Simulated assay, not measured.
Amino acid sequence: MTDTSAAPTAPAGIPVFGDDKHLRILSTSDLAGIEISLADVVETVEDAYRTLHAGRSHNPRKLSVKPEDGHSVSYAMLGRDGSRNVVAIKTSYKHGLDKGREEQHYYTALTLYDDVTGLPVAMMDCSRIGSLRTPAVSALLARECAAPGARSALVIGTGTQGRLALPFLLTTVPGLERLMVYGTHPEGIAAVREQVRAHFPSRDVEVVTDLRAAAADADIVVATAGAHTPATVEAGWLKPGALSVLVGHGLAPSTLHRADRVIATSEAQMHVTGTDMADADGTFPAVDAELPAVIAGIITGRSSDSERIFAYNSGLVVTDIALGHRFAQLALAQELGTEVPLWQ
Results as ranks from 00 to 15, higher is better:
H271M: 09
I298M: 09
A39K: 15
V16M: 04
L169G: 02
G55S: 07
H95K: 13
L112S: 11
H53Q: 14
T171R: 10
G226K: 11
H199K: 11
T44H: 04
R128D: 00
P135T: 05
D19G: 15
G82V: 09
A146C: 03
G241F: 02
T283M: 10
T319L: 06
V86L: 01
A259R: 04
W343D: 09
L238R: 12
S244D: 03
G175S: 12
G315Q: 12
V87C: 12
V87S: 14
H325Q: 13
S64W: 05
G301Q: 05
E103V: 01
V340N: 04
E335I: 04
A264V: 01
P120T: 06
A252D: 14
H325C: 09
Q195R: 15
G13K: 14
G79I: 00
L97H: 11
V262L: 12
A48E: 03
I34D: 07
V116A: 02
A190H: 11
T4F: 12
V318W: 04
A139Y: 00
P148F: 03
L336C: 05
A54V: 00
G157L: 06
R261P: 01
T172V: 06
R203K: 15
A147I: 05
T171Q: 13
G188A: 07
D125K: 08
T134I: 01
T51M: 02
L141S: 00
H71I: 04
G282D: 02
D115F: 10
I299E: 14
F200A: 09
V245M: 05
L246N: 15
I34V: 14
H185Y: 12
A280S: 14
K99H: 13
T117Q: 05
T108R: 13
A296K: 02
L211T: 12
G315L: 11
D47Y: 05
T117W: 01
A268E: 12
A214Y: 08
E144A: 03
R101L: 10
A88K: 06
E234N: 08
E102R: 15
E35A: 15
A48C: 06
P341T: 09
P341K: 09
F17I: 02
P67V: 11
I220W: 01
S29D: 15
G188H: 09
S202I: 03
L246V: 09
R193A: 14
P120I: 01
R163V: 09
T255F: 00
V221I: 14
G250M: 03
F284Y: 13
